[in-house]
């Protein structure tokens, strides 16, 4: 059979059936590609952490655990430019100092209770420090419980030594070397 005959017979005689077969085949390829893509994506994200949602009580408990390391608690939000600007200092500290625990506490919930934006931010910036997503309404009821000197403005950073109960607090962006000084001050 010549090619021309084959084509014409297939196109004319069996074309509806062949078209259906072709469509099915194409769909399979598409599905396979989608599965592969999804697998690749999940592999790429396997190392990315999820923000851990915490209630106020869970968060307070975390701050008061007596046997823990020195805590560096940074209050931030995805919409806060100075917060994003100072984040590398916390990431660096988290990477280089195993004697302290860095907690990046997202305050995004107050304007947007959906953590999606925070999750995306963590992925995009590849954050390695522990990220908490504080789910607490009515900040006036709890800001003082966390730190009396805090007006609620972001960013803010609290350094706590659970063994000595010493605290340092900074409202506003921290500078290079400042975190190390705060840690020294609570020893």
């Amino acid at each position: 059979m010549h090619l021309g005959e084959y084509l014409s017979s297939n196109l004319h005689a069996n074309s509806p059936l062949n078209l259906a077969r072709f469509a099915l085949h194409a769909m399979r390829i598409k599905t396979n590609l989608f599965v592969i893509f999804a697998l690749l994506l999940s592999a790429a994200c396997a190392n990315a952490q999820k923000a851990e949602a915490v209630t106020l009580q869970q968060f307070q408990k975390r701050l008061s655990e007596k046997d823990g390391k020195v805590l560096i608690v940074n209050f931030w939000a995805t919409w806060c430019a100075p917060c994003i600007h100072e984040l590398p200092l916390f990431e660096k500290l988290n990477k280089e100092n195993g004697d302290v625990e860095v907690l990046l506490v997202s305050m995004d919930y107050d304007l947007d209770p959906d953590p999606t934006k925070v999750e995306r931010f963590i992925d995009r910036k590849k954050l390695e420090s522990k990220v908490l997503f504080l789910t607490a309404d009515n900040p006036n009821a709890w800001i003082d419980k966390i730190e009396k000197r805090w007006s609620g403005a972001l960013p803010a950073t609290l350094v706590i030594n659970p063994k000595t109960d010493k605290r340092q607090f900074v409202q506003g962006e921290v500078g290079e070397g400042q975190l190390e000084k705060l840690i020294e001050a609570v020893k």
């Binding site: 939000a77 806060c80 100075p82 305050m107 003082d144 609620g152 403005a153």
Partner: peptide, 11 residues
């Protein structure tokens, strides 16, 4: 007096 989360003033 009422506290709230907010943007810090850009000093």
């Amino acid at each position: 007096k009422v506290k709230a989360i907010g943007c810090g003033i850009k000093w």
